[in-house]
Simulated assay, not measured.
Amino acid sequence: MSATGEAKALTPPDICARKGRTPLVCLTAYTTPIAKLVDPHSDVVLVGDSVSMVLHGLPSTLGVTLEMMIMHGQAVRRGLKRALMIVDMPFGSYEEGPEQAFRNAVRVMAKTGCAAVKLEGGEAMAETIRFLAARGIPVMAHVGLTPQAVNAFGGYRVQGRGEDAERIRRDARAVADAGAFAVVLEKVPEPLARRVTEEITIPTIGIGASPACDGQILVVDDMLGLFGDFRPKFVKRYAELGQAASAAIAAYAQEVRERRFPAAEHVFGDAPTAIKGGEAA
Rank of each mutant, 00 (worst) to 15 (best):
M109R: 07
K118R: 08
L24A: 06
D88G: 07
P33A: 12
P59V: 00
T204M: 08
K233P: 08
G269C: 01
R107K: 15
I207V: 10
F181G: 03
M223A: 11
A133F: 01
A141H: 05
G206A: 08
P33N: 13
A126H: 05
V196R: 02
A182K: 03
L241I: 10
G113M: 03
G269M: 00
A244V: 12
A134Y: 07
E6F: 13
K187V: 13
I168G: 02
S210L: 02
P98E: 10
R78F: 10
I217H: 03
L58V: 01
V51A: 15
S60I: 05
V267A: 09
A105P: 03
T28G: 14
G121E: 06
A172I: 08
T204D: 05
I207R: 05
I70E: 00
C213I: 03
C213Q: 05
L224Y: 03
V235N: 05
K8I: 12
E120D: 08
V108D: 02
G73I: 06
P138C: 09
A247K: 13
T65E: 05
K8H: 13
M140N: 02
A281N: 00
A280V: 12
C114N: 03
A116D: 06
A149W: 09
V54Y: 01
R18K: 15
V150G: 07
V38T: 08
A239D: 13
I275N: 01
R107I: 09
A105Y: 04
R170S: 11
V220E: 11
V267K: 09
A180Y: 04
S50Y: 03
E120G: 04
Q74L: 10
I207K: 02
R169V: 14
G225N: 01
A165F: 09
G277I: 00
D39F: 09
G160W: 02
H266E: 15
A174E: 02
T204G: 04
A281P: 00
D222W: 01
T201P: 03
A182Q: 01
P23S: 15
Y94K: 05
R77L: 06
D221V: 11
V25S: 11
V184C: 06
G5C: 08
K236A: 12
V267S: 10
G179M: 04
R135G: 09
C26N: 12
Y156I: 11
Q148E: 10
A182I: 09
H142N: 07
M89D: 02
L241F: 15
G121Q: 06
F153D: 10
E265Q: 14
A253S: 14
V108I: 15
A281D: 00
A9V: 12
Q243Y: 08
V25D: 02
E166S: 13
G79T: 07
E255L: 14
N151I: 06
R21M: 14
R103N: 13
T197R: 06
